[in-house]
Design a protein around this nucleic acid. Structure first.
Length: 311
DNA sequence: ACCCAGGGTTGGC
DNA sequence: GCCAACCCTGGG
């Protein structure tokens, strides 16, 4: 077995990054990676071979320490590229910081989000299933469901005598046996049907992921909402985390309350209205503003206030 | 079947 | 557009 280690320093990317906050922020791309000894582990697919990658960071903007283990020779640059993509480190996030600075009502938002970045999916399909699973669900429950499915039906890889799993591909997923309550035994409830039917629809179009990738945000939104269990909110999560489309602004109950509180005082705007507003006002920054506002509202105590109001 | 809500979606009007 | 129903688990 081949193994090695390298670091990514703060001056190799623009803006702030905090690994712990990002990986545990409940973004619907995937559950947090497997945590062992303060290091997060995940199997990467690097040029058709599997590599175990471990990442750790002591705190905000500290060096990222990256370990890797693999059977075949691997080019470190490829591991680096995947990491930069997943944590959005190749994005000039200072544009977002500037936008927050330039808009007075958003001035204090970043104070509650230092180092938080997008946590994107390595595999869009996993993101689709995660996001469908997250609908009308709790973060705790959907992450457990996805992890359990991964461990039961995902392909197993053993490194350092420990087992790691990759989320099953579409072909495996549709063939999960119906015995013992099948998918439902993972606690996904009525969403099981949505997951299976959507997977069938994806398989019906072999180049599904490429098609979505090549569509504009608006076209992709139309296409992805054709899937079962994928309404506007889940669609935006999938487009943001699974296909890197930054214009997406997933509107859930909290984002509705928070956005209304800031921009629609006294009104009770529909989710659709809020989405349209966000795309006009935030444009390409929508994804980040959504991420930050959600977190901001939770940490600043605003959610409790807004919950009490209930409208 | 103690009660309720959870980063919504669907199907019916 | 609005509204109830939805699986089921964690937490009060």
């Amino acid at each position: 077995m081949i193994s090695g280690q390298f670091t990514i320093e703060n001056n190799e990317y623009i803006g702030d990054f905090d690994l712990n906050i990002t990986i545990n922020s409940g973004q619907t791309s995937q559950p947090p990676w497997k945590l062992e000894n303060n290091t997060y582990y995940e199997i990467f697919e690097v040029r058709d071979s599997k590599v175990l990658v471990g990442v750790s960071q002591e705190g905000l903007n500290e060096d990222l320490v990256v370990e890797y283990y693999c059977v075949d020779e691997v080019d470190i640059e490829n591991i680096r590229k995947i990491l930069f993509y997943i944590f959005d480190l190749d994005y000039n996030i200072t544009d977002v910081y500037d936008f927050l600075d330039d808009n007075e009502e958003l001035n204090e938002v970043y104070d509650f989000n230092k180092g938080l970045r997008l946590y994107k999916a390595q595999y869009p399909y996993e993101c689709i299933i995660s996001s469908i699973c997250s609908a009308n669900n709790s973060i705790k429950r959907w992450t457990k469901s996805i992890n359990d499915i991964k461990q039961t039906y995902g392909e197993k890889y053993v490194f350092n005598k420990k087992e790691y799993y990759v989320f099953p591909e579409e072909e495996v997923f549709v063939n999960i046996p119906d015995t013992d309550n099948g998918l439902k035994s993972f606690g996904v409830g009525y969403r099981a049907k949505y997951m299976l039917n959507s997977t069938r629809m994806i398989l019906d179009q072999p180049d599904f992921h490429d098609v979505i990738n090549n569509l504009s945000y608006n076209e992709a939104f139309e296409k992805i909402t054709e899937l079962e269990g994928v309404g506007p909110k889940v669609a935006d999560c999938i487009l943001l985390y699974g296909y890197n489309k930054r214009e997406a602004y997933p509107v859930d109950v909290w984002i509705n309350r928070i956005t209304s509180h800031i921009y629609f005082k006294g009104e009770k705007p529909s989710n659709q209205k809020i989405m349209n507003f966000a795309q006009e006002k935030f444009g390409d920054y929508s994804g980040y503003i959504q991420l930050y506002l959600f977190n901001y509202a939770r940490l600043s105590g605003l959610t409790e206030k807004l919950k009490a109001k209930k409208s």
